[in-house]
Deep mutational scan, measured.
Amino acid sequence: KELVSALYDYQEKSPREVTMKKGDILTLLNSTNKDWWKVEVNGRQGFVPAAYVKKL
């Protein structure tokens, strides 16, 4: 599985998104959309802005 690192804090703005803190390591589930990537963090799945994470 592919991992990404959070470059910035992000506070979810809808139920489809997830909150992350800078430095968090997230499991990348889907990166086909260039703007929003689906990740899993702390057992929750949702979307984060692609520009806020980088692949490890």
Rank of each mutant, 00 (worst) to 15 (best):
V41G: 09
E40I: 06
K13N: 10
L7V: 09
L56H: 10
V39M: 02
A6T: 03
K1H: 14
K22D: 02
T32D: 15
V48Q: 00
K54E: 14
E40N: 04
V18R: 01
K34Q: 12
P49H: 03
R16S: 13
V18K: 02
V18Q: 03
V41M: 14
V39C: 06
Q11Y: 15
L26I: 09
P15N: 11
P49L: 04
N33E: 11
A51D: 11
R44P: 00
K38Q: 14
N42T: 05
D9F: 04
G43C: 07
K21S: 10
E2W: 13
Q45K: 11
F47V: 07
I25F: 06
Y8R: 15
D24W: 10
E2M: 13
W36S: 02
K1V: 14
E40F: 05
N42K: 09
L7R: 08
Q11A: 13
L29I: 14
G43V: 02
M20N: 01
Y8I: 10
V48T: 01
K55C: 11
Q11H: 14
V4R: 04
K54S: 13
K34G: 10
G23D: 07
Y52G: 07
D24S: 06
T27C: 13
Y10E: 00
Q45D: 07
K22R: 11
M20A: 02
L28I: 07
V39Y: 00
G43N: 08
M20E: 00
G23C: 07
L7T: 07
L56C: 14
V41R: 12
V18Y: 04
E17S: 07
G23M: 03
T32S: 14
L28F: 03
V41C: 12
G23S: 04
K34E: 11
Q11N: 14
V41N: 12
W37H: 03
L7G: 03
A51V: 10
L3Q: 10
E17A: 06
D24N: 06
Q45Y: 08
W36Y: 08
K38T: 08
N33V: 05
Y10N: 01
L29G: 01
F47H: 06
L3I: 10
L29Y: 04
Y10R: 02
P49Y: 03
K22S: 08
K38C: 14
W36I: 03
N30H: 08
N42H: 11
S31W: 09
A50G: 05
